[in-house]
Design a protein around this nucleic acid. Structure first.
Lengths: 343, 343
DNA sequence: TGTTAGCACTCAAAGGTGTCGAGTGCTATT
DNA sequence: AATAGCACTCGACACCTTTGAGTGCTAACA
């Protein structure tokens, strides 16, 4: 992994990677020589390129084409070559503006963020909301919608709202629902949703509450209400990947789109990059997103006031403009964290 | 429009349309003759086809290819030729099962429905939720999330939930929020959300309430809460349109995907087909969805217990399997209406 | 010893040519 | 009115050649 390369080899590799990122075409020795301000001849570059190929950093699609970087090369590039661009004033403005604009609930902000990421990067933007289950309980409320139909509304301290339609065995009148709410609100104060759920389950076995009609009913209903599966995922800018020449072929595209319809895969990725701080980069097969299509993922986590963790990032071809995407993801994650900490 | 055709011409047109729907390839005279149980020769068919072309029902991509139906032909086909398939038992089972399975809030049901439509039709499924604004107010609630930060939760009698983060000038303690809620709940009982909003605005000008501290505060906050823009749109199965040969080309696809990112267009369509009962069909340019790519839209509206109206349907190529899609859309709309009326 | 110029070689892409066959329109025939 | 026959059209396909970008290798050079 920790390849040792002369300064010259590194420069040439960098030139090739950046050229390829810009053009999506195999890079030839003469192109590199030209770009390199003429200080080397193409023949010399060829020798170096042969070395790099031997080391597994380059491949050629066929004998007489230029070379293209391997995943390993991208890895090396992002680890030790890439010169990160500054986030421009205009980009900063856009990020901040879009964050605020929503002015609405958590999910609106996150959706808007996903869109912003997509716009700024020209790839796909993705945001995974902080897991509701690990967030702190704030409020529960039952509303009678009809005969034996109750709407349960569950609010976390992030301001995330979950609602659930519950069918009950017997009808409950509004006052009863209010009392149930009061009881449960008190019981769950300060717990996370997961803890609250456990608490409900243990209380249901408790002899004292078992024989209290109101409580046992309340617990039975709330059990459903606090069972929340799956996290919210916001993906925006799917059309943009059609701009990339490597995805002009329908079969490849389909693979990607299908990967996104099964959101499970995304959540797997999420859990991986939750653990570490700062920007995480997954290249090609490291993403386990798609077999044949080579996609990369640049992500960072963000935190909320109640210390729950979400994830945001950008998905694009391995041939992605890392130098600008990485700072954008980084900056956006910081801004979102700040915004969400204000609550 | 009301083309007059002999029975034979109609049969031949039907054969061509159905053949083309099945194969996506221009249909030749001999293919039609064969399919037609040999009762006619290809030469005869050719004459008829020449007529049909003259009437604007067929075109040929070039002199020696078969013919393909025009939009006009599809229109004629769905209006007076198509033999609608029955919805199979298995399909019915799937529709019903998916409706119920969710067991969760309105939006989950609609999302699931969109997915079911996509699965059964093999095209894209689309569902537009009943407009929140025209639904009947059920409940409003304020929850304090932090200093000068209030989460407003608004519930309609459909069980749709809207939440909104509101920043206030001064901090409000929980008891005050409860009293505000009670006051507003009483005030808005029985109104639609739109009416509720108007009521709030008029009350704000009312001299009596103007000088009641609690009320004026409540009104100011609720004004934001009852201002809801945009309807929910659920689109599923976007990957499926990649199966259609006519969309294997990236440029066309992009056009469609972009159309969907701007959901405005969809809502325009919605409003058109809201007015009429039963299944509505828009073919090609009638959809105004995409300039070059030829897509069709089969929709129907559905109603809820509170008499608000939503829309659901299927989007696919003009060359869509109308005979099976139309009954599926019809049946699904009926089932959803029934399910939502139960509340 | 590292760099470079030169040269033969490779191979995809692009363009040209010829054949094939599905499909047509027209006309004469039944 | 329906059909069989026939000349014609034109895309699809296979095959070929040309072109040019790019390579590896070797010998000369600083």
């Amino acid at each position: 992994m920790n390849v040792e390369l002369s300064a010259r080899s590194r420069q040439i590799l960098e030139a090739i990677v950046e050229d390829y990122i810009a053009t999506a075409e195999p890079v030839g020795s003469s192109a590199v020589a030209r770009r390199h301000a003429m200080t080397l001849s193409s023949a010399t570059v060829r020798n170096v390129m042969a070395n790099l190929e031997e080391m597994g950093l380059l491949t050629s699609p066929h004998t007489s084409a230029g070379r293209i970087p391997t995943e390993k090369a991208y890895r090396f590039y992002v680890d030790s070559l890439v010169a990160l661009r500054q986030v421009s004033r205009d980009e900063k403005r856009q990020i901040i503006q879009h964050c605020r604009k929503a002015g609405a609930g958590l999910s609106d902000i996150l959706k808007e963020t996903s869109r912003t990421l997509s716009q700024l990067s020209n790839y796909m933007g993705i945001v995974v909301a902080p897991s509701f289950n690990s967030d702190v309980f704030r409020h529960i409320e039952f509303i009678r919608l009809g005969h034996r139909k109750i709407l349960a509304i569950l609010v976390s301290s992030n301001g995330a709202v979950q609602n659930r339609l519950i069918e009950t065995d017997e009808d409950h009148d509004p006052e009863e629902l209010v009392r149930m709410g009061n009881y449960l609100n008190e019981m769950m104060q300060g717990l996370t949703i997961t803890q609250a759920r456990e608490r409900v389950l243990s209380e249901m076995k408790n002899e004292k509450t078992k024989y209290d009609h109101l409580m046992s009913r309340a617990l039975r209903i709330s059990e459903q209400a606090v069972t929340v599966e799956g996290d919210d995922v916001f993906v925006e800018g799917q059309a943009r990947i059609l701009d990339q020449p490597e995805f002009s072929d329908a079969a490849r595209m389909k693979e990607i789109y299908e990967a996104f319809e099964k959101k499970g895969i995304i959540l797997q990725l999420l859990s991986r990059c939750m653990s570490a701080d700062g920007v995480q980069i997954y290249i090609g097969s490291e993403t386990s997103l798609s077999r044949s299509a080579s996609v990369s993922l640049v992500t960072s986590r963000f935190v909320t006031s109640s210390n729950t963790v979400g994830m945001l990032g950008v998905i694009g071809p391995t041939r992605m403009g890392y130098s600008s995407v990485i700072p954008i993801v980084d900056y956006t994650a910081r801004m979102i964290s700040r915004l969400l900490s204000e609550v």
